[in-house]
Amino acid sequence: MRVAIVGLGKMGLLHASILNVLPNVQLAAMCEKSSVTRRLWKKVFREIQIVDNLEKLSDLDLDAVYVTTPIPSHFFIAKTLYTRHLTHNLFVEKTLASNYDEAKELCGLTRRFGGANMVGYLRRFTVTFRKAKDLLSEDYAGDATGFTGYAYSSDFYGMNRGSKTLVSRGGVLRDLGCHVIDLAIWFFGDLKVDSANVESVADGCSGDVWHFAVRKPGGLKGDFKASWCMNGYRMPEIALQISCSKGIIEVSDDVVKLQLNNGQLSTWHRHDLNDTSFFWLGGPEYFREDDYFIKSVRENLHAEPDFDMASKVDRLIDEVQFKVDKISD
């Protein structure tokens, strides 16, 4: 299977590495806009074609393409790949697009052209969140009645200046908050935004803390917080606390806890959840994610989260931003 990567930043290199380890996958090409980066990587990846624009992928007979560029460029690149028939099997790093309109248009293209399509919501491949999904699906905790979730990192903690990077990364909701939103949609289905606000953090930061409340028809309510200016979050951390009729589920990247109303507590660390893979790079979930997508392409299976599912995250983020803008006006 011949695969290309568009965008040679850290995520592009990570996926390229894992793809190269997968059996029967050939890393056929890499596409990178920056001439400096291209010149350097040409000397590193001596066997792989490195090109400067998408058109040059046209003669390569590609089976699949990974899009790992900054979020604002996802729409243009994915649309070009489809409409120029460069591939119909597409993996796009999260978020699918910069807004819901773009995401919807890409969903339309998948219906028109077919193929496997998937968005890189990595947490769905993390053993702790999978365990929480199982606990919910198999009714160990009863019906979910409400939840709180957060997505925190210290990436910009202590930085007190505006940064172009913050914009190119799509803001904290698209860059980090999208993970907890996707998990909530995966766990509970479609959600609507009730209210949203942005708090400034006390010690100054390029970004802020986003807070928003959601609900689901039928009664479930939830609260989210997202910030990349938190102290003590050396690695980005996603977590949810879910209130259910029979108890409470707490889940993060590291651990799942089920506290039943009768006092019984069960705890599972990654260690207890068979957190392994064939190759380790950045954590076993990255390998599982790529292995799953490639298998979907090879066996003509439906991949999840597909563009349709992922577009729900874009829609919800648009709703949050709309509510906040309305307050600002």
Partner: peptide, 18 residues
């Protein structure tokens, strides 16, 4: 690696890091 990834995040990717 952690510090370099953090810097890459803050300065806009691999080129900025270099």
């Amino acid at each position: 690696a952690y510090e370099y990834v953090r810097v890459a995040t803050q300065v806009g990717g691999v080129t900025g890091l270099i």
